[in-house]
Amino acid sequence: MILYFLTLVLFVMGVYCLIAKKNIIKKIIGLTITDYAINLFIIIIGYRAKGIAPIMFKNMTIQELAEYGVDPLPQALVLTSIVIGLGVLSLMTSICLRLYEKYKTFDMSEINRLKG
């Protein structure tokens, strides 16, 4: 239970960083932290005490795998989510570079041409 709580703490830290910081690089870091908090949460769902990696090896029966292996689906989900996070992160970084090129600042409160 404490593990779930800790991922929640991590998530809230990320959201705080996203809201409170004005620097857009820090906002990106905050967003990445929230992303990883969710990934950690999904991994913990699949956890079981004294589990093994859900991979068949030679001289291992299906029953043994079912008895000791952790749930493989959350790991597949996390891998997909990490790849998506990578795509979003690289897009965000490149938009950041372009923004710096145009506005000469990383401060979100000075990037305010759109209003209303």
């Binding site: 996203l18 989510s81 923004l99 990037i111 305010n112």
Partner: peptide, 23 residues
């Protein structure tokens, strides 16, 4: 670029929340 960045941040928060719900 500014609009895109705003959309990106809010959209990513939404996606994160959806993933949380799915998990």
């Amino acid at each position: 670029l500014e609009a895109s960045f705003k959309y990106l941040i809010l959209g990513s928060v939404a996606s994160t929340v959806i993933l949380f719900g799915i998990a």
